[in-house]
Structures are given as structure tokens and as C-alpha cells.
Nucleic acid binder design. Structure first.
Length: 582
RNA sequence: GGUCCCGUGGUGAAGCUGGAGUUCACGCCGGCCUGUCAAGCCGGAGGUCGCGGGUUCGAGUCCCGUCGGGACCGCCA
């Protein structure tokens, strides 16, 4: 039907007779026999000069055959890639008429209520922004596939219907027709399958896999999302990071055209000490400054004897607004700190010659004040925020405040990829059982250097577990897995899971490991998140063709919807009456 | 489960201290217009102010509830 795409036409086509197809963007009428029609397809827009007695309106689907010609002197549109040419002598064929669209099919729709955009997603996607975003995704998928293939990975598709494994995220359940009362679960991730593929000798597996989790939605979370899921046998942690890193870099290059700076590495401990969070945003400073020793012998009650005192410096030159916060804002920061778990927040405004304005200034000695200002590197106008508490609380609160005050939108500025390594094997203690809780999942391999602490001080044991973080968003995580049954048993026992219980809950998974499981490890990272950041979006819905709203529904299809009672009966299901309204 | 913000013609907004569905821009329909380009000019149509209740002589406006949307917390091993 067509010889060219609309957006590619330029002066090199002058004189050619072309046929182009697309949607009518705008129409500008000038009297009885002249009108300009902007014809749009995904490649762009080109102006067609048509007779005004042709009735074409917004979003009509038309085919135009005409001659590419240079625009007359003075009518070139420099703002349009095709703006030096136009299509003349047009023969217009209306392939389909159209109702007026509910919102402008251009950048103005960025301001339209998102549920309206989603209700008419097929129109929304006609827009340049959405076309670009979907193509960013496609490039990422393609780059990842070719990079993984060239590194010897083989793509294996794993089942969507699998047994329920009630660990971790809430699962979507699918009732069984053949076995009423039994259910399949949709995979939260192909974790189980990929480890079995290692036992099966596949050696290097990958999959661009759909994962489903029935948890509340967010800007960076949907019910269903795509991950690059990979697993490797006979490898060290470095081998995994190296190979996943290559895929990420290939994807970034495919989209941006340039290689990002080398992926940095930081240990979990350092990330927490310096940034107060396990997904540090390295695009800005305001790092946490260690102050515990400085106040070791202070008389100030709130600091005396505190396990950990740290502070952040809100640099007036970089954050003039925050550094000049008035009492209201400072009280709000304090409330925020308390909400996160701190007993309080100490703020200090640094004046001329190191003078300090703070409600608690009078409790500090001159030498403490001087040492503080010097250690923080503070200058006049800066705001200092200090927390004294247990280590976890201190770093977490300051890390959160640091992000609140300084963190730019996720897609802005340089791309700062960082591996966060050496996550703790266990995190905290279950208040009911008194047993440690797994930091990631119970199949992560403990760090070999820490095995001597395994029984005596389990919370100090690091894992061969790692995350990939980009601009403060967790892209994904992975680990070296336990392949030795005896070590697995020790981890389960530490978690308070007996051999019998482990067998009952994970038997179908552990059994295969008795038949020759190779050492292996892997990773998975979220393609939606990477695509959003590389596309310059703050929300993964913008890079998903048909996403759900935050409440988990689809305004276009109205899913989820009730089903016929016959369908329920066939599945052996009966609905409970709705909860009584009060 | 929780906190906060937003619901006004098709779209985006304004509507202040409660006083007639008022206003602006875009779109839409009709007319004019031969070089525009998010064209211009003239005219017109189009709204149960999300929904329900309350306060009031009177509610888009104040209060309560509810529904929808969004940001975040919980949750996401």
C-alpha cells in the first residue's frame, strides 16, 4: 500500500511519486481548494497539500499518493524533520473514518488524566512518546538477547503454571478444572526452574521472563513485569556480575548510543554506612558522616552513649532551599525521622565563623561544635542533620532524609550503575520464632570467609548475594546458590526450619540437588525499570503497552471482571458473600 | 491495611470569604479564508461540578461517607 514511511521523507526524495499511509494529525484549511494535512505514522509526520474539498478529519486513516517536492521559499518548517518537503498533487484515499479522539494525539496528552489515557491506550500509543518508549523496550530486549546468546547463554522458556510455594511475594492462583480444589500458581520468578536447569546441565540459561506478583502496585511495580533472568554453572560471583553487566551495558548502548561509565561496586556495609540505604543513588553527595567517636564523651544526653551517631550536611551551595528551611520544614523533617524510627533529629544551622544555631547548641562544648563543623566540612549557610541511635536506625533515617532532600528524578543526569555486594545472609530476627530471617532467600550461599561465624554470630554472616542499582532504583538481584545439601540443611536449621519441614516445603526443589547439582549462581533484573530510566520516564507504566492502574485494574478492558457462575462451578469454586458493610 | 494529594462540557484549567452552571484555552460542528504548520477570523453546540448524605435561606465551594485516579508507607523471601 505504501512506498515510504511518513517521517523519513526529505529533500533526497524530491521528484519521487510516493504512497504513504497513516493517521490525519492536523488539518489546516485555506479556502476552497487548499488544505494542509499532517499525515502521521510511527516514524513521524509529513505535510500533504490537498484539495480542500476532500473530507478528512482528525485520526482518519488515509492513504496519500503524491509527489515529494521542496517547500516554497519561506515556508520550510525547521522544527519538523520532514519540514523541508511536502507532498503535492495528492490523491487521497480514505481507508477509514474516525470519531474525534478523546484527547490530543500529541505531547499535550501528557497532562491528560492517566486513567483516560489508559482507557484509550490504543490512541495514547499513537503518540510519539509512547511509540518511542515501546521501541526503547524492543531495543533493550533485542540487545540483551544478542549479548546473552553471544556469551553462550541459551534461552529456555519455563512454565507459567506451577505449584504454589508460599514463600515470598503473594502469588496469583489459577484454579484447576481437572482437580477442583487444587490450584496452580503463576511464577513470581523462574527461580526454581532455572536452578533445575543448572542441575540439568544447561550450563548457561537466560530468559526474558514474565513474572507475576500479587502485591500492591507502585511507580516501579506492576502485577506482571519482565525480567532478564539468568543462571550460570561453575562460576564465581565475578563471572555472574561480568556477564549480567555486559547485557545491561549492551542494552544501554542500544538505547542511548553510548556506553555508560563502568559499573561501580560497593559492599552492602559501605552502602549503608555512606548512603544509609541498600540501593544508593550515586548521582549526588550528601554522604553520611561518622560522628560517634567525636561525641564519645559528650554531656549532651541525646548523644551520650548512643551506639551510632552520624550526620549529613545539606550544602547551601547545592541545596539553597533545603539548607534555609524554616522551623516548620525542620519540624516536618523531624517528624519524618521519627516516623522512620529515630528517637529524634538534631538540626544545626551553620553561621559565620563556625557558629551554630540549634536548639541543642547549648548542650555542646565549644570543642565539640568546632570538631563537628570541621568533620562535616560545613560552611556558613549549611544545614546539618544528626541522628543518634542504633546503627540500623541512624543510617536508615539519614539515608531517607538524604534521598528526600537531594535525590533528582530517577531518569535525570548521568546513569550511575552500581553493584551492591555482600548482602547479609540473615536480616533481623523473627519476633515470634526468635530465629534469624533470610536476607534474600534461603538458597543464597553464605560468604566462605564468614562460615566460622555461622553458628556463633549468624547475623554477621555475609552472603554471596548482590543487587544491581541504577540511580537509586533496584534493577535486580542475584546470588551464588547453595548446591551442597549439608550446607543447605545448616541454613534451614538456622532459620528454624527442621529437616522434615524443609522436605515438606521445598522437597520437590531439594530432591534434584541430590542428583549432582553443579555450583551455580545467577541474577535477574527488571527490564521495565531499566527501560523507564533509559526512556527518561519516572514510571514503568509509560514503557508498558497495557499496564494496570495503581489499584490493579485496567480502565480499557475493566479487568478484573466477575465471571459466569457456570465457569465457577466448573472450577469447583463458590463465591463468599461480600463482606457486610457497616 | 495506612498517610497525603486530585476529581468542574471531549481535554486541560480558573472558580478567592458559600450567593444563578460562571469563565479561559484546546477540541468538536457550521461558515469564511490559496502557504499554513499545536494556522487565522466569525458563529454554534456541548456540563447531574465523580457519587451519596449533612450543615445552610442558599453548596462546585464547608463537613461526613463512598467511588475513581495518583504519590508514598506497610507489603514486594
Amino acid at each position: 500500500m505504501r512506498t515510504h514511511m511518513c517521517g523519513v521523507l526529505d529533500v533526497s526524495h524530491i521528484g519521487q511519486t510516493v504512497s504513504i499511509c497513516g493517521w490525519v494529525g492536523r488539518r489546516r484549511e485555506h479556502g476552497e481548494h487548499l488544505a494542509f494535512v499532517d499525515l502521521r505514522d510511527h516514524s513521524g509526520v509529513v505535510q500533504c497539500v490537498v484539495d480542500n474539498n476532500v473530507d478528512v478529519r482528525s485520526e482518519y486513516v488515509i492513504r496519500i499518493t503524491g509527489v515529494v517536492r521542496a517547500r516554497p521559499e519561506g515556508t520550510v518548517n525547521a522544527g519538523l524533520p520532514t519540514g523541508a518537503v511536502e507532498i503535492g498533487e495528492c490523491v487521497v484515499e480514505v481507508l477509514n473514518s474516525a470519531e474525534p479522539p478523546p484527547f490530543p494525539v500529541d505531547a499535550r496528552a501528557d497532562d491528560v488524566d492517566e486513567s483516560v489515557r489508559l482507557k484509550f491506550r490504543y490512541i495514547d500509543i499513537r503518540r510519539e512518546r509512547m511509540q518511542r518508549n515501546l521501541r526503547v523496550r524492543s531495543k533493550i530486549n533485542s540487545a540483551i538477547r544478542s549479548e546473552m546468546e553471544s556469551n553462550g547463554f541459551v534461552e529456555v522458556e519455563t512454565p507459567m503454571l506451577m505449584p504454589s510455594t508460599p514463600e515470598g511475594a503473594r502469588e496469583f492462583l489459577v484454579p484447576s478444572r481437572k482437580e477442583p480444589g487444587s490450584f496452580f500458581a503463576l511464577p513470581q520468578s523462574p527461580q526454581l526452574w532455572k536452578q533445575l536447569l543448572m542441575v540439568a546441565g544447561v550450563d548457561r540459561y537466560y530468559q526474558i521472563a514474565r513474572c507475576l506478583r500479587d502485591e500492591d502496585l507502585r511507580a516501579d511495580r506492576q502485577y506482571e513485569f519482565m525480567q532478564l533472568d539468568a543462571e550460570m554453572s561453575f562460576v564465581s560471583q565475578d563471572d555472574v556480575l561480568e556477564n549480567i553487566g555486559r547485557a545491561v551495558v549492551a542494552a544501554a548502548i542500544a538505547v542511548t548510543g553510548e556506553a555508560p561509565p563502568e559499573i561501580e561496586r560497593i559492599t552492602w556495609r559501605d552502602a549503608m554506612e555512606r548512603f544509609g540505604i541498600d540501593k544508593p543513588d550515586l548521582r549526588f553527595g550528601m554522604e553520611l558522616v561518622e560522628l560517634t567517636a567525636l561525641f564519645a564523651s559528650t554531656e549532651f544526653k541525646a548523644f551520650a552513649g548512643a551506639a551510632c551517631i552520624k550526620g549529613i550536611r545539606v550544602d547551601a551551595a547545592t541545596y539553597p532551599e533545603a539548607a534555609a528551611y524554616g522551623r516548620n520544614k525542620l519540624d516536618a523533617l523531624t517528624d519524618r525521622a521519627k516516623k522512620i524510627g529515630a528517637k529524634g533529629l538534631v538540626w544545626m544551622k551553620v553561621g559565620a565563623d563556625g557558629a551554630v544555631d540549634s536548639p541543642v547548641a547549648k548542650f555542646l562544648t565549644d570543642s565539640e561544635r568546632e570538631a563537628l563543623v570541621a568533620t562535616m566540612g560545613a560552611v556558613e549557610g549549611d544545614l546539618l542533620l544528626l541522628v543518634a541511635d542504633e546503627w540500623e536506625t541512624t543510617v536508615e533515617v539519614l539515608g531517607q532524609l538524604r534521598n528526600d532532600i537531594g535525590r533528582p528524578p530517577v531518569h535525570e543526569g548521568p546513569y550511575r550503575y552500581v553493584w551492591v555486594t555482600e548482602f547479609p545472609l540473615f536480616v533481623g530476627v523473627d519476633p515470634v520464632s526468635g530465629k534469624p530471617r533470610p536476607g534474600h532467600h534461603p538458597f543464597c550461599h553464605p560468604h566462605p570467609d564468614d562460615l566460622h561465624l555461622f553458628d556463633s554470630d549468624p547475623l554477621k554472616v555475609r552472603a554471596l548475594a548482590y543487587d544491581l542499582v541504577l540511580n537509586g532504583w533496584e534493577l535486580g538481584s542475584g546470588s551464588i546458590r547453595i548446591h551442597e545439601p549439608e550446607l543447605q540443611r545448616r541454613v534451614f536449621n538456622q532459620l528454624g526450619i527442621s529437616d522434615e519441614e524443609a522436605d515438606r516445603r521445598f522437597g520437590f526443589f531439594l530432591q534434584p540437588f541430590k542428583y549432582g547439582a553443579p555450583p551455580h549462581g545467577g541474577f535477574a533484573f527488571g527490564i521495565d525499570r531499566l527501560a523507564a530510566i533509559l526512556a527518561g520516564e519516572e514510571n514503568i507504566r509509560e514503557v508498558i503497552a497495557f499496564p494496570k492502574t495503581q489499584s490493579g485494574s485496567d480502565p480499557m478492558t475493566n479487568a478484573p471482571t466477575p465471571v459466569e457462575s457456570a465457569q465457577l462451578a466448573e472450577l469447583g469454586l463458590r463465591l463468599l458473600p461480600p463482606p457486610a458493610s457497616s
